[in-house]
């Protein structure tokens, strides 16, 4: 075992030395908090789609901020394939389990930081504009789900990029899937029954306060569903990394 290499340190150093990497989580927080603030201050008190389920208003910005989270997950692995630094990375940390663990730890850590900060920002913007009853049933759960959704989504994208071994392919597959595909699929009545089990649909449902009649699972189960997808992707990523030539 190559126990004396420091994969997480290497990953952190890679992250901090590349501007396109370290600006992305900042962008995610700024987009989520900023857009929620703009929307809540402008329409928070008038638009019924925002007041019906208060979390709809709180997490309005998240729909945009998650674009940056997906990009970060793809970039953390994809830029190594795109630039060819993967060979150097694996020469430095040849144990691929340890290497991938370093990527996952950094991805999960960054995701959680983005989650906490962007939920805090969206919450603050909501409190300052329309106000929010924090004691209402389900609110704590919805906010926690909002925070956890970020690391799950980020690690999912990071792992799928490892499976695809190609940054462009990952961007091409994941961005439309998360931002167009599943939303569009959910609009088709027959397909909706299936599409609601996709990771982003399930994760976003966990952030809602009220039950939706046509969703076949509960809010907490939604978060677990998203976690299961992520776990599956991690396993697939590790399998690819261990089996394929770098």
């Amino acid at each position: 075992m190559s126990a004396t290499t420091f994969p997480l340190r290497a990953e952190w150093a890679k992250f901090t030395t590349l501007r396109s990497l370290w600006t992305t989580p900042l962008l995610a927080v700024a987009l989520s908090a900023g857009i929620t603030a703009v929307v809540q201050f402008s329409y928070g008190k008038t638009d019924t789609s925002l007041t019906e389920d208060p979390m709809e208003g709180v997490f309005y910005g998240l729909n945009f901020g998650q674009v940056a989270v997906v990009c970060l997950g793809i970039l953390l692995v994809g830029q190594e394939y795109a630039s060819g630094t993967l060979a150097t990375s694996l020469a430095a940390v040849p144990d691929r389990v340890r290497f991938f663990r370093g990527k996952l730890l950094l991805g999960a850590g960054l995701g959680l930081a983005v989650g906490v900060l962007s939920v805090a920002g969206q919450l603050a913007a909501t409190e300052a504009s329309v106000g929010l009853d924090l004691s209402a049933p389900g609110t704590a759960r919805a906010l926690a789900a909002g925070m956890l959704y970020h690391p799950l989504l980020l690690v999912l994208c990071l792992s799928l990029t490892t499976v695809l071994r190609n940054q462009t392919a990952a961007l091409g597959l994941l961005s439309p899937m998360v931002f167009l595909g599943t939303t569009a699929l959910s609009a088709i009545p027959g397909v909706r029954d299936v599409a609601q089990f996709l990771p982003d649909r399930a994760g976003l449902y966990a952030m809602r306060l009220h039950d939706a009649p046509d969703v076949h699972y509960g809010h907490t189960t939604g978060l677990l569903l998203a976690a299961a997808w992520t776990a599956l992707a991690v396993a697939a990523g590790l399998r690819t990394l261990r089996r394929r030539d770098a």
């Binding site: 004396t4 290499t5 420091f6 994969p7 340190r9 290497a10 952190w12 150093a13 890679k14 030395t17 590349l18 501007r19 396109s20 830029q79 630039s83 060819g84 630094t85 060979a87 150097t88 990375s89 430095a92 940390v93």
Partner: peptide, 23 residues
Amino acid sequence: LDAQAVHGGRTAAGHLSWIAASH
């Protein structure tokens, strides 16, 4: 292996620093 397999966005010192960090 391949001198071109570096990320152009990093500085020379930045590139070496992440390799150094691994050890």
